[in-house]
Design a binder for these strands. Sequence first.
DNA 1: TCATATTAGTAAAACGTTTTAGTGTGGTGA
DNA 2: TCACCACACTAAAACGTTTTACTAATATGA
Lengths: 336, 336
Amino acid sequence: MTTKALSIKDIAKKANVSITTVSFILNGKAVEKNISTAVIERVEKIIKDDGFKPNQVARSLRTGSSKIIGLIVEDISNPFFSAIARLIEDKAYKKDYKIIYSSTENHPGKMKELINLFKSRQVDAYIISPALGTEQDIQGLLDEHKPVVLFDRFLPSLDVSYVGIDHVEASYKATEHFLKLKKKNIALVTIDLDVEQVVNRYDGYKQAILDYNGNQNEALVLKVPFGQEKEETIAQLKELFKEHTEIDAVLFATNYLAISGLTALKEMEKVVDADFSVIAYDDGDVFKLHTPQISALGQPLEEIAERIISLILMQLSSKDVLKTERVILSGELIVR
Amino acid sequence: MTTKALSIKDIAKKANVSITTVSFILNGKAVEKNISTAVIERVEKIIKDDGFKPNQVARSLRTGSSKIIGLIVEDISNPFFSAIARLIEDKAYKKDYKIIYSSTENHPGKMKELINLFKSRQVDAYIISPALGTEQDIQGLLDEHKPVVLFDRFLPSLDVSYVGIDHVEASYKATEHFLKLKKKNIALVTIDLDVEQVVNRYDGYKQAILDYNGNQNEALVLKVPFGQEKEETIAQLKELFKEHTEIDAVLFATNYLAISGLTALKEMEKVVDADFSVIAYDDGDVFKLHTPQISALGQPLEEIAERIISLILMQLSSKDVLKTERVILSGELIVR
DNA sequence: TCATATTAGTAAAACGTTTTAGTGTGGTGA
DNA sequence: TCACCACACTAAAACGTTTTACTAATATGA
């Protein structure tokens, strides 16, 4: 039963033509290369009847390209990333590209390893949600003129294409919403990381309070250490809410912080209501089904995926290096 | 800046040895092949200093294996699958295997396409959560003696390894829990699909009611059409709950059905409480944070991933075809 | 001293494609 | 009739490895 896979040679033999001819036909170069329609049809019939599929590995070796796009995210099991992955995969598939992915798991060395691994597999393009300190690794790809698109997180020191949302605007909108509801003591729960998209969320929050002459109080800004255990975060949050009973609104800067926050509140038996409002970054079933429903800053997942893929495909289909493009989309405040 | 990647030839030239020698060293066959330690050290130093990484594509072409495992699921953005994917990826990575994945999206033809694509990429092994009607495709892989492990869903007609949980037992446990709480009218919300793991959930439910002399009522079993739009499902559920006000407990047979169910209840303003209990299949933050908290049948994700990978690796490392193994784990009823 | 082992390596084929540089035939124009 | 071109196709190199079969030199045993 173990039949060795057919090769182009078998097809050539069967059709009584050369390997070259079969290859031309396979690659749609038949007319251009003056292959007669009779031969084309004969060969195509055999290919179809025998179900011959060219060996992509050999093809990659020869052409240097693989029709594979590498996707590197921090954690594929984060709903935001898995949703994006699914959408990207779907769109890429339609253009005959496959996705090979990996999670970096906040492990600093892993990015370099992954990039090397992907390179040795002759991956054609890279879609990366970059961790801190991976600038050089990504610059390496750019130096080799590989198509690269960053998303979700941006590295300002790199001249590279990017798709993401305007985090200043998004957290401004959320904070503004609180202020219009006459909230006086708005807390921000964010992470302790000096990267653009985190800083931006903080900036939008601060700017809104400033513009509305709100109550500025650094004590209400909690910066959770990056990568900290969930239990620890919950404990910290409980303390915040206990110490600062004046808090009447909280903006959580990531979806998992919001989940930890809601867990903390639940454990404290503190309810979310008109006197204590919450907005979460990224939307999800958890927030929709929560009692009461939780307002959220939704990211336009479909559009993010669409833009990423079209940037990648443009670079892939162009002979020369295109100039980088930064796509900044708007988050949507979903008031519940 | 565009430096062509180094090849084994460059290393050989630089070290003044043959390509063969470098290859032997790279593959740890140096001593076996009587290469002197002096040469080994010299070559290894050059490899390290120059950061040479062998081209995996060429290696695959020659050896016929790729160090890639294909993962095929219905939808990577389903939290159950993305959680498993993450765990599998992590464990595979440690053994130097990478994952290439795809979602079949309930599209019947896509499985065959994907398998062909993966074959043409010389994927070494397959981890599949099979959709209905894909028996022949998977049998094709078995015929070629490719390592295959199914998970989550099983295809009884195939002699293939499998990792999953005992769904009869799980839904029995859930239903039994309801019965011990003196529930009289226990509804089951499941999907209208004639596959083992779905039928099993139904069987466990029925058996428990039988064993406890409970109230058997087919009208309380809702079989939602597979692949139906969420809105439609919610409407159906509302109708069920409206028509049958006697229902005092509901077991949802999948996580997304539970989410639709909770949404329906929320929209009807019907609360989950002592008089109306709910158990969801698969655990998640949604259920933990729900008010009240929702009991769930948790699957041992870590162990499932562990078992899948170890089955795959065993098959991969064995010369001959191993006999198939079916690993049936227990789901855990998390009472909240 | 001669045959034989052992040591330390290498040349070349093979994996399955793509692509460059041909080849041989028949037709056309002058 | 000769030069040239279009047409229809092909031989062989190349991509970067692994692996088989070999060589040449030295060591060993009788």
